[in-house]
């Protein structure tokens, strides 16, 4: 299969999925250790109501939260990637690990790419799923990311990436490292088409993911408290034999060092994105006042179908 000649096929999938949450379940907040009632947690977008800690979210859930009416279609790469290209085996065969993880997580790999509308504006969003091998980036992730970027170019949509990943997938060896230049190329294609690329860094964004597409956003947004960095904290401590400063590699720390544009609470994320996307994509004054939230009127003016 050739990347240059083959194209992305959008896969029709209407998703207004209610996550199956039994009523009687409780979760312990990883930060304040309070027991949290599941229903309450879900209605609070998986942010701890006691301490505001942002818990990790499954990729599909994030897409639901971002798109208008929680509706999107998924985009997939034009070809399946080679399964276990290196025949890698650590304490377990990578091929087996992949199959087990797919069964346990109900997703094919560590990324889902969705397309739909955000505030009425078309957008393609690539979201990492930390549940799938720590959100690690291998061939399948890279291919899906590029497919998303190309779909954005094809439909003149904005491209957004939400990272939640420990970095490259070691079981794919050098091929995982090659996802750094490959995803960067995806970003370049979007930018060269004059379209916005927004990077949203969720917990964690480290290693090869931080050293590629995740740091190249036109706008760099992070979730509160997200761990963001290149090297792992343990590796740094072992190298320099010093204790790391408080809050080191947290989103707030990075923002204060000048590495991020914004830290946005999950509750505010969708509205913030709508505001930014409208500022970038609807730059001219309009003849009439268009209220935020009135996407239909806005789109009618732009000659687009309403939502």
């Amino acid at each position: 299969m050739n990347w240059i000649t083959n194209y992305v096929r959008p896969k029709l999938q209407q998703l207004v999925r209610k996550t199956d949450v039994p009523d009687n379940l409780w979760t312990k907040c990883p930060k304040c250790e309070q027991m949290l009632y599941h229903r309450e947690l879900e209605s609070n977008l998986y942010v701890c109501p006691k301490c505001d800690h942002h818990l990790r979210l499954r990729a599909a859930k994030r897409l639901e939260l971002l798109f208008d009416e929680a509706t999107y279609e998924t985009i997939e790469a034009p070809a399946e990637v080679l399964l276990d290209p290196l025949c890698f085996r650590d304490r377990k065969r990578y091929a087996d690990r992949l199959k087990e993880t797919q069964a346990a997580t109900n997703v094919k790999d560590a990324i889902i790419v969705g397309e739909g509308r955000i505030g009425g504006l078309s957008a393609v969003v690539a979201v990492f799923d930390f549940e799938f091998m720590g959100g690690s980036m291998g061939m399948a992730v890279g291919d899906a990311f590029i497919a998303g970027a190309r779909r954005a170019v094809e439909t003149q949509a904005s491209f957004l990436a939400i990272s939640s990943s420990g970095g490259a997938r070691m079981q794919e060896g050098i091929l995982s490292l090659m996802q750094l230049p490959r995803t960067v190329i995806g970003v370049q294609e979007v930018k060269e088409a004059g379209l916005p690329y927004i990077a949203i860094l969720a917990d964690p964004t480290t290693g090869g993911v931080s050293a590629s597409f995740a740091m190249l956003g036109d706008i760099q947004i992070a979730e509160p408290g997200a761990v963001i960095g290149f090297a792992g904290a343990r590796v740094i401590e072992e190298t320099i034999r010093q204790t790391l400063p408080d809050g080191f590699q947290r989103a707030e720390y990075l923002r204060d060092k000048g590495m991020l544009d914004l830290i946005v609470h999950r509750r505010e994320l969708r509205n913030t994105l709508i505001r930014i996307l409208r500022l970038i994509r609807n730059p001219l004054p309009s003849g009439q006042v268009v209220k935020i939230g009135d996407a239909g009127a806005w789109n009618a003016k732009r000659g687009r179908p309403g939502t």
């Binding site: 931080s210 050293a211 960095g229 290149f230 090297a231 792992g232 190298t239 320099i240 790391l244 060092k257």
Partner: peptide, 14 residues
Amino acid sequence: AYPGIGAEERGQAE
């Protein structure tokens, strides 16, 4: 790349 405090603060990944 060097794993250190300054390197991270000044944006090694970026």
